[in-house]
Write a protein that binds this DNA or RNA. Structure first.
Lengths: 343, 343
DNA sequence: CTGAAAGCGCTTACAG
DNA sequence: CTGAAAGCGCTTACAG
């Protein structure tokens, strides 16, 4: 591989001049520039990223921290990752993946190597050691997600509150008054997982505002968990007419659990899957009404925010919330009473 | 951040000695080593990855090339990625993601920067420009997947032939003789996608060997594509008693399409989803019998193979094929004739 | 507008 | 066993 030295020699200039041309970092006379470019072309010169990084103290590499295990289904995780990777590439950065078990020490260790200019955090908890550690370090970072009190920090996150409001508005608009919620049971590892916590809280407060009684069932992230949740729900609140599920892995189980209990979706009960990957709805029969999570977009925006910060672009510090988008399927309909009346 | 200089000064040795201690690259007397380690501890020294890379001409970074779009459902893609990332980290490497649109030029461009020591290819086609380009470059690479003629190249891949044999053996074992195949319709982008091509070929030859007539239906990667495939199948080969589906996105559609046509799974027809992510089967009612793709493992093995090569470990060049593993569900049973007879 | 030179923080022959 | 020094391939004040 040709180096700047080679180019400089061939173009009869100093390597500084080559550097100026390559980086457009200083004015160079048109004639000189032409000579340099010609030499670069002839030699097939590509500036060495490592040497540049060392000299400029900027590696143009950012790390994406992701959980070592716990791969969500439906490609949600992959959407974050690929959104972030695409944006990074577009902006001339490289994205490295750091699958960490959650220990902040491990992160500090890696950070110490100086390989990355900044860090993008995924799967942020309400209280997250990594965030504390980063905040007191001097490594720029951004979150996809947010802690309980993220003021002053850079983040992009799902807008669970708005998503829940939109979901309830949609169901209320159809005439439902007894709307239950099924969410995943958070285990030790996932304790305080933001979207789940915020979704449940929003549900409870909105339903109460509306003068109704909240019904929340938790279950495992499996189809059989979903089936169990369905029977628990029917036992605890048999007059439920619609159910919101935030648990992609269990939602098909919920559908079949309701079916086994003799209920037809949506004739007897409506079902809605929220914070879901777009393809999931179509897997079910009937096709599910879903609120699609903006995974790819959040990945992109997270990377953009971080890179803006790294480059000192003086944009406003983004603290962005993005709601899911409604995708109507066949699993929601007005409640039975209303339909009978209107006929 | 403390540098080797700082450590050397504090321990009263040369930076060369510090380097020897850090890298265990040369014997150092116990006393000296102790002094150096003490100094490192006190200063919180971490060796700078970029400087090390420049000096040693090895960045210890590998690139994972993935398609810019086309994110498969069910987390298969993420499993490759996370398998590779985990292994890389374990072995002291960093994995960068290069989402490329498939143009080999773009790849060469990035490679020229010298940021990575080697490349891991995903979504390899039977004829793949990237492979040709890499083969004539001097950048070590390994494939997850393989081209039509991968002799002499490093790869790990799904064993589509064995997977198909196992699937057919399983169904034949239940007594099925009329087994059809539904695969995805390859569009321009995916043309010559190895697993699909190889699976279909294996199916055709095994079925003929068995003295039966192959029936292959192709369809889009959607639930409605699957429904369409179901009706096409019943029209073309109404005596089919079992169907193998290699199309995760469509398989639920196939199930419901068969249902709409009045068939019950598995009483009237058995169904099996192959090269599937492990969670998918449980989403369906009845739970699907699946052949689970070893995504995580392939990712791990691919990264290991590449790193072995980079480090000149003299292991045998791995050209590994890994079959899927059977996970029995409720969607397969002996064909109706047999069951009636045996009763 | 251009160049000489220091320096980024390491590794690695080469000497001793 | 240890050190002095060159060198990895760039960027960036500083001069002119």
């Amino acid at each position: 591989m040709a180096t700047m030295q080679d180019v400089a020699a061939r173009a009869n200039v100093s390597i500084a001049t080559v550097s100026f041309v390559v980086n457009k970092s200083k004015r160079v006379s048109p004639e000189t520039e032409a000579r340099v470019r010609e030499a670069m072309r002839e030699l097939g010169f590509r500036r060495n990223a490592v040497a540049r990084a060392l000299a400029s103290r900027r590696t143009r590499i950012i790390a994406l921290l992701l959980p070592e295990l716990n791969h969500r289904v439906g490609g949600t995780m992959m959407q974050f990752v690929s959104g972030a990777a695409n944006t990074a590439k577009q902006r001339g950065y490289n994205l490295v993946l750091w699958p960490l078990s959650g220990e902040a020490d491990e992160m500090s260790e890696l950070l110490g190597g100086g390989l990355v200019d900044g860090v993008l955090l995924m799967e942020v908890r309400m209280h997250d050691d990594r965030v504390l550690r980063l905040a007191e370090s001097d490594v720029p970072f951004a979150m996809i997600g947010r802690t309980e009190d993220p003021s002053g920090l850079l983040y992009v996150d799902m807008d669970s509150e708005t998503t829940m409001r939109m979901s309830l508005d949609y169901l209320w608009g159809l005439g439902h008054r007894k709307v239950a919620l099924i969410v995943e049971q958070l285990d030790v590892v996932m304790e305080g997982y933001g979207p789940t916590v915020r979704t449940e809280a929003a549900y409870r407060s909105l339903v109460k505002e509306h003068g109704c009684e909240p019904v929340v069932v938790t279950c495992e992230k499996t189809a059989s968990g979903g089936r169990g949740a369905a029977s628990e729900l029917l036992e605890r609140a048999p007059d439920t007419t619609a159910v919101i599920v935030m648990n992609e892995e269990a939602v098909f189980g919920v559908v079949s659990g309701l079916g086994r209990a003799g209920l037809t979706v949506p004739a007897d009960i409506s079902i809605m899957s929220i914070e879901t990957s777009p393809e999931m709805g179509a897997f079910s029969e009937p096709v599910l009404t879903t609120m699609n999570a903006p995974g790819e977009q959040l990945g992109r925006m997270g990377a953009d925010a971080l890179i803006d910060r790294l480059e000192g672009t003086d944009k406003i510090m983004p603290q962005l919330l993005l709601a899911c988008t409604l995708q109507e399927g066949e699993s929601t309909a007005p409640p039975r009473e209303l339909r009978s009346e209107s006929r």
